[in-house]
Design a protein around this nucleic acid. Sequence first.
DNA 1: ACATACGGGACGCCCCGTTTAT
DNA 2: ATAAACGGGGCGTCCCGTATGT
Lengths: 216, 216, 216, 216
Amino acid sequence: MPVAAAQRARRRSKRGTYAKSSETRERIFAAALAVAGKEGIHRASVAAIAKKAGVAIGNLHYHFGSRDELLDELMRWLVSGLLTEVRAAVDACDDFFSKDEAALRAYLAYVHRNPACTRLAEEVRLHHPKLYAETTAMWLAMFRDEIREGVVRGELRAMGEDEVAALAYFLLGARYFVDQMIEGAGGRDYPGDDVAVAAYVDLTRRGLSHTEARTR
Amino acid sequence: MPVAAAQRARRRSKRGTYAKSSETRERIFAAALAVAGKEGIHRASVAAIAKKAGVAIGNLHYHFGSRDELLDELMRWLVSGLLTEVRAAVDACDDFFSKDEAALRAYLAYVHRNPACTRLAEEVRLHHPKLYAETTAMWLAMFRDEIREGVVRGELRAMGEDEVAALAYFLLGARYFVDQMIEGAGGRDYPGDDVAVAAYVDLTRRGLSHTEARTR
Amino acid sequence: MPVAAAQRARRRSKRGTYAKSSETRERIFAAALAVAGKEGIHRASVAAIAKKAGVAIGNLHYHFGSRDELLDELMRWLVSGLLTEVRAAVDACDDFFSKDEAALRAYLAYVHRNPACTRLAEEVRLHHPKLYAETTAMWLAMFRDEIREGVVRGELRAMGEDEVAALAYFLLGARYFVDQMIEGAGGRDYPGDDVAVAAYVDLTRRGLSHTEARTR
Amino acid sequence: MPVAAAQRARRRSKRGTYAKSSETRERIFAAALAVAGKEGIHRASVAAIAKKAGVAIGNLHYHFGSRDELLDELMRWLVSGLLTEVRAAVDACDDFFSKDEAALRAYLAYVHRNPACTRLAEEVRLHHPKLYAETTAMWLAMFRDEIREGVVRGELRAMGEDEVAALAYFLLGARYFVDQMIEGAGGRDYPGDDVAVAAYVDLTRRGLSHTEARTR
DNA sequence: ACATACGGGACGCCCCGTTTAT
DNA sequence: ATAAACGGGGCGTCCCGTATGT
């Protein structure tokens, strides 16, 4: 959304501070998030959003240009938020397994705070495939980099580029059902973050087998 | 879909041969799959489906009652097809790791044949949350059962129920990006089934660490 | 109905007796009456009628040609039934006031037996104005004739043709709310036929008669 | 219609003069009346109304919410207009027979001005039975009150409550065919208001009065 | 500038009456 | 006599410009 952002910036810069306006803008944005979270992005009509925000429909167009641009901005916000937090958590650690665990914990924390966001982020795949592909590519790149660096540091066994790439997909996907694990069945059978993290860490660290790893 | 299937059967049994009807029905169903696969379920309009199928719109309602019922049947078909195939593959094997590998290979084969179906199956989450939850529960149950039996057979290390449950979520999720791994970037960086399976199997079998598994 | 009746006769004469067919025909007709009575004529869809009759939709067209012809026949039946009964009751009496009372009693009896029919007969005005006009004309002619003959017999005061015509309208209209008088408010405030008839007879007798009004 | 009128008033008061809106609203309302008057209420499609009014279909929904609400308002207007005028005419008179005659004259005047409205008012019975029942109840109550008061004033012979109630039905019904009397047969055999009123007045006066009938 | 009211047109779904094949 | 296929509208919704205040 560089275009829309640029427009906004231009508009605001013209008049210096415009507190009231940006407040309305935020209200609309929050309303869009709420409506989309409840009904799904494709059912988030401008009427519903405007009603939720308590503003007139035209106002929405005034601030965002069109429904598409509003949703576009919403989607960019959705997909960037999680990735940013996870990245920060990862960068704060030193070795692969710490990073991996920190990433999952950051992910879990995010889902706890914004239960609807990960589900909404999935809808991006439908409504903005390009953005989705870009974001996924960034996630995958992050995983691949971590793995490679882990190998370099001697924390992980040696492996080929192909295997690294494939593992990135699997590790990224492993997070996919985290929100359902937490919320599924009313949250009754969620064992808690620690157990979930332990299971994941065990999986990645040593595998499921209790036998000694054989040379392959 | 059992209900709809039963209705169809009843209808047909009443009059002996009336081949044309079920043929048209299949055409409509296939058209719905094609349109939904290209545009997404929520953009699969009855007009587009009817046009693709080469029938009148009214005919579509004659066979399926409404757009919702058609899409409902489509979604049930989508989520059941993959699960059935994977289950068959799993049941044909004896030990955990064979089952696990067979499951992934069946999954890959299915995606190769029906590239759009797994993505469509994800859309079910939006349009029919209940069905999605049921299906996910079945997948999870399958994984949990396999893990438990693997433990009983001594193929896997001992673990608590909570860990089993959490692992089921992670293993199920690991498949989530398989279709993107295959199709992503025009399929250029897909290393092939064997490499992907090897990476996955290695992950599950012995973990990412090259160090000997320590007793915990 | 001459057209439809002729068609039917022709059709039947072709094949001699057609017991089953005419039975089905009656079933459809009765179903049409039932559906129209419940929902109104304009909402009596062929699907609903066929379902109620327990036959296929096509069958309905086979017997009646089209929905319009079926409803046409139904409407002719509706408007003719009441008129015929009232006429028979009138013809059985000799003087004007006996005829008038007998007409109202026949009307009441008919409404008691077929509560929905008078309301349906009103709908004819919408759906078949020509038929409605014809029927109304017949009712009016009947009233005018009775009045004129009453005058000739010396039972009624002398009056001009214009007054006769106007009175016919008023007397015909006076029956219009009879069914609501009977059914209105769940029928709780209907005083019974005798009271209603007495009120009506008193209205017409003391009004139309040229005899001196007696103190009551 | 009070509700809708209130809404409209509120809306307008918010923004000072915004003449255009209410103007469009009236145009749509008038168009609805025209279309319904020509084709019947149940055939008054939004498309036809919008076309007649010269506005877009969406605009119609903007002003009235839905076809049903528009027609609902139209029906309330229909049934209230006539009753109001008749009531005003009745209240301006003192004795029963003056009131009765004034009521009929007001009725006739209304029909002359709005030929379609009485027929449309009848359709209300089909499309809004509750409203129809309420309106009929008000008409009946008006007639009953007039009769009772006439008795009290000594203008009418004494009678029981049951008879009053029954007479109210008959007198109300007597007006039912007035519009057909006027328009029927192209209006050729309508003798004019004075003759019709005279006939009606004679019917009621000599019938309801306990005074001796005079030679005419 | 900012917010609201107003007006317009495009689909989408679905129901319905009918005809053709069996 | 029944099942299947057909096409025409109907209504509702939605998103969006534009005009109109504050």
